[in-house]
Design a protein around this nucleic acid. Structure first.
Lengths: 230, 230
DNA sequence: TAACTTTGTGTAAAATTAACGCAATAAGCT
DNA sequence: AGCTTATTGCGTTAATTTTACACAAAGTTA
């Protein structure tokens, strides 16, 4: 009555997919963690993730685990590094394909059990299970690099946003400060923003213009190979 | 007398590490392929690689396979993407962690069996085994990105090189042409080059200056976070 | 020998980036 | 209500960087 039904000539590592989930509340970056309910590292916070099934790709696995553990559904899931340290899991040899997921906080319904899944501010992350501290460092580094090549920010912002929100996002991810007016000019000149509404006449100075992401224009730019410089 | 000695409760994919090996002959990029001696894809060209052992990381595996299949030893091996398509190997479920290796052609001794391993010019690659065509496309894309952040070129060039060789390398990787004088100025201003010899007095105009990579200066630059713009 | 290539060293114009000014007006405070 | 502060749109100017070429010396090729 052995439960070990799957046998191989050579040892096979287990393969998992983990998800580093980023959100943005208009001011700072948030990261979603789940509290582990079982050993090892029971009670510690970790990234959602789990064992890859034999008939799914790592991205499919990451999305499935994300949904199962947090109820979030997002199309923006992409691998960024595979962690293969021999002793990263005390149970058996496990390698994990780590993914970055971007979700719109504005679309997240608050129904989650806060004891199980919680958003943490970037500077407020507790020590994590497994090698997830290491995974987090790599994820943050990757996010910084990607934001210069792809307008990933638009996956984090609501459909319609202000220039200040966009700037806050870039500043939060890149950990720098920009001059508001120069940032404004640079973004507009890029051409990947369109004004959401034609700025109503009664709008006063203090009411900011609303923008949205222009996917068509971005596709053209991407074709030529562009890069955001900061 | 079953040979299936390793058993698990759930199915485990096999994990391999593959190596896309780049070399540079002073003019163009070369890629090292090995001819497969066994099925599947027997007789087809492929990247060196093989199954990861249970006690080694993917990089250790990549280096070991590289050595075993081609006799090359290089320290510059780094993963760039993990390929997880469900049917990428007809035998069983195999995911592969793909690596980029950079080797100095000047240090490669020609003793290899040309029937088994051969350098191909970049535009001259035959159709490859498995999903290795896909892997190659990704590797070339990754190389283009990395060369803007790290002076990986210096792993491909001999210890001492001329400015033209360096420019040829950048042009080959990025598939663009630069103005010779502007490239020269930009590279010198960066400060990561030192003159190898103080340009002998009898050297005529046609004898180019020799440079080498200044690792100290690069470390300083890297600290600040730099980027090569092209 | 003539035509061409390769190398070192420039320079001037064009484009981009960085730094900052200012007025209008909403919001906060007493 | 009156005062201060913060936010937004729209500029300008100076510094820096990028781009496009010029030219002479000296090998190489035909």
């Amino acid at each position: 009555m052995s439960e070990l039904k799957y046998s191989y000539k050579y040892p096979h590592p287990a393969v998992t997919a983990d998800c580093v989930i980023f959100g943005f509340d208009g001011v700072s970056i948030k990261i979603l963690l789940v509290k582990r309910g079982i050993e090892p590292y029971k009670g510690k916070w970790a990234f959602p993730g789990g064992f890859m099934r034999i008939d799914e790709t790592s991205e499919e696995c990451a999305k499935r685990e994300l949904d199962e553990e947090t109820g979030l559904k997002t199309s923006s899931v992409e691998q960024f590094y595979t962690f293969t340290d021999v002793h990263r899991d005390p149970r058996e040899r496990v390698i994990t394909i780590a993914h970055i997921a971007l979700v719109r906080l504005s679309e997240v319904k608050g129904g989650d059990d806060a004891e199980v899944a919680r958003w943490f501010a970037q500077g407020d992350i507790p020590s994590l299970a497994f090698d997830h501290d290491h995974i987090l460092r790599m994820a943050l580094k990757t996010l910084k690099e990607r934001i210069c090549f792809e307008p990933i920010g638009f996956e984090l912002l609501p459909e319609v946003f202000t220039m200040s929100e966009l700037q806050n996002l870039y500043e939060a991810i890149l950990e720098v400060k920009f001059d508001r007016r120069n940032f404004y000019n640079k973004m507009l000149k890029l051409g990947i923003l369109s004004e959401a509404e034609p700025r109503s006449a009664d709008a006063s100075r203090r009411t900011p213009s609303k923008y949205k992401f222009n996917a068509t224009k971005y596709a053209e730019l991407k074709q030529k190979g562009f890069r955001l410089e900061f």
